[in-house]
Design a protein around this nucleic acid. Structure first.
Lengths: 418, 418
DNA sequence: CCATATAGTTCAGAACGAAAACTAATTACC
DNA sequence: GGTAATTAGTTTTCGTTCTGAACTATATGG
């Protein structure tokens, strides 16, 4: 019986040092997970929460302070007796660069370790049909502007992430298929986008819907949901599956493509070559066509559709309800296959909520009756640049999960790029 | 922003001893993953494969030998120069009990640590409609017979697993919903089924399709597949998702319910209360009805259907092709949502292969055109009791993953149950 | 001022894997 | 047959990490 190579090396030998890495990350997580309004946790509190001894936490915190990841923020007085604890917080002088290429805009921003978007620039620009070199040049300019402002604000930028509207291979930084940009099997030269002095070798490439799903996890409804399917309505219909606080990418990295779930047997041809995909009945083009919405750009059509809906236009209402119906079918199937307990609608779906949700809920009730007892359908409340926030957030999680990489070189030493 | 309780304690503090547990398990895995025909690996080989030092492997193996999990099996001569290594193998005097309750039979068996089914008894008996006490009593008798034979064969039985055709809550040993048995929210008293002297507190309860999917992983096509959806055709249609050598249960433990993926908008009512579920068009009843197959039991109908198919009966062929068509739609949707690269058909589907596969492949080609380039549709070759093997296999994996539990008490000491 | 309570540090101890030196067992070659 | 070469496995020493207990530090309450 032949076995796959992946079978062999899947597990690495455990070393004593791994325990340190895990516990460093554990301490950081306890501090990062804290509600910003709550008082900053002390060493003693972290010890009690994690099960580590006070001695261990002191040692771990000392390392993290030395690495510059944490800062001590005064005494935490709770009015109790005894020595007050010293509050610990993530160093908000550290941040990561988030980048986004979308069909009709480019965006760059810096998010600090606490998750606050400190700097953000969006540039409207139709990118569909433009070549990757051209687009990356523009993005690089935007990035340079943002990084310059970050320097002025005293922010050290550690890593960078880029979200694009298409399937990607993150390892090799290749856009496998981005029909709405017209890119296919397009390798991206991301090295020039890497902020100087950043740790790690390159910019993390991700799918836009996946990143938006993660933004929802960290900055949106995520903390109240255990498992959800994020459905992103842009020109195409993308998605992301989040389970237990983690994005589920699947073995090949392409999970969550809910836009190509089959929802109707006799559907029209999809850009993926299939038939009956959700995208063919709930994508922007399909809805605009069904509603009879005219306009020169997607944004313009969207405004007109909203106007028509506001005015009670029956064709518009029917078109959106039809999209909701099929979204419900896709959600029902997804819930059964992967056991999600919520659906979050993002992108243009979130603006259509009042007209979309009734049909979606009715459809769910028909096709997965008991699901609505425990599951929820909610609208995303994140801004347009959710994908940027998610791409940055991934980098932040990465830093917090591997703090030792920052500890090897003293925080003052700026690396000299080759 | 409210956070879920699960958010808090999800990570446990790392301890130095965890490294030991992980490495013990790593060594066991290297030995267990070995092809039974290949020579038994030596300490030195394991060291080279795992990246551990020879000293560490020696120490780990010494513990595992002392715990009775491993045995030394003579010298491994490869004709090379140098001192020959001592072959290491799993102790085949240790086994686990696998149990299965199905609609028309009960089964019990003992599988040893190497994965060989050493003892197995199947008792045909229609269980639908019978109460759980009655069924468990019969199963207990069967189990006692099997355990007695195991004792005669010198097999020590460490743990037990039970597969049932329905949704389960494994933690609380409750069958949430097993429509084909007529059980709903039925707690099972599994303590009496636990083999005396076994480690662990109770019998692991699992879903039959999930367990069959795991049996496929360990004893069927699994080793050659990276990620697959197992679709089990019994009275109902069940399923299991396997990624990277692990069953994906989803956050609530109910993932893989492919039988209730929506494949047709205007389908008939399903037992789950929904409409258009795969089960309503590819379940046994639907296919028998469409084919016009008569008979008093499902097994009898199945034989007649196969006879009709063998004779070229157009109604039978059309009925099975129709099932294949909808299986293809479900597979296409699943592939997009969770990025599987193969579909394995089990249960009664595997016997219908020649008539099912062409329609299934055609349907996949229509709805997910590029998928067949990289993905595969294969038939399970496992016996009827695949779920039993999978339930036992889970227990074996559990033992191999936590060998320290066996090391605390010397192998001779039989525990006295309360 | 002193008892009490809580926060945080220091230090010895145990568990573990890494590295290197060592012993053991076999083959190749003269 | 004897010796060098080669590979397997063990022993010893060391560094890392967490734990637990003792200790210091800093607050409140009378």
């Amino acid at each position: 019986m032949r076995r796959l190579p992946a079978d062999e090396g899947s597990q690495a030998a455990g070393r004593v040092a791994d325990v340190r890495r895990r516990n460093l990350s554990l301490v950081l997580d306890r501090i990062a997970a804290r509600d910003p309004l709550a008082p900053a946790p002390s060493r003693a509190l972290i010890a009690a929460e994690t099960g580590l001894t006070k001695a261990s936490v002191s040692s771990l915190v000392a390392d993290l302070l030395a690495a510059g990841l944490l800062t001590e923020v005064g005494l935490s007085r709770d009015g109790e007796r005894g020595r007050p604890g010293v509050g610990l917080a993530l160093n908000d002088g550290l941040g990561v660069l988030g980048l986004e290429i979308n069909v009709d805009y480019l965006a760059a921003g810096v998010v600090d370790l606490t998750g606050r978007v400190r700097i953000q620039v969006v540039e409207e620009r139709i990118n569909s049909g433009r070549g990757p070199e051209e687009v990356l040049r523009d993005l690089s300019d935007l990035s340079a502007r943002v990084l310059s402002r970050a320097g002025q604000d005293g922010l050290r930028v550690l890593a960078a992430g880029l979200a694009v509207p298409g399937l990607v291979d993150a390892e090799s930084a290749v856009v496998l298929d981005a029909p709405n940009l017209g890119w296919s099997r397009t390798p991206l030269d991301l090295a020039p986008l890497m902020p100087p002095g950043g740790r790690g070798a390159t910019v993390a490439l991700s799918n836009e819907a996946n990143s938006a799903a993660l933004a929802e996890l960290w900055y949106g409804h995520g903390p109240t949901l255990r498992a959800y399917l994020f459905i992103s309505g842009e020109v195409g219909v993308g998605g992301g599956l989040v389970f237990n606080g983690e994005l589920f990418l699947g073995p090949g990295g392409h999970a969550g493509e809910v836009g190509h779930v089959v929802v109707t047997e006799e559907g029209s041809m999809c850009s993926c070559g299939g038939r009956g995909c959700l995208e063919t009945v709930a994508g922007q083009e399909a809805v605009f066509a069904a509603a009879g919405t005219a306009g020169s750009t997607p944004a313009e059509k969207m405004e007109r559709l909203l106007t028509a809906l506001g005015g009670g236009d029956p064709a518009a209402e029917a078109a959106v309800a039809r999209a909701g119906h099929y979204l419900g079918i896709a959600a029902a199937s997804s819930a059964r296959l992967v056991d999600i307990s919520a659906v979050v609608l993002g992108g243009y779906f979130s603006r259509l909520g009042p007209w979309l949700l009734p049909a979606l809920r009715a459809s769910l009730a028909t096709h997965a009756p008991r699901l609505l007892d425990t599951a929820d359908v909610v609208l995303s409340e994140l801004p347009q640049t959710a994908a940027l926030m998610g791409a940055a957030g991934s980098c932040i999680r990465d830093v917090l999960a591997n703090p030792q990489e920052l500890m090897e070189q003293p925080p003052g030493a700026a690396s000299a790029g080759a």
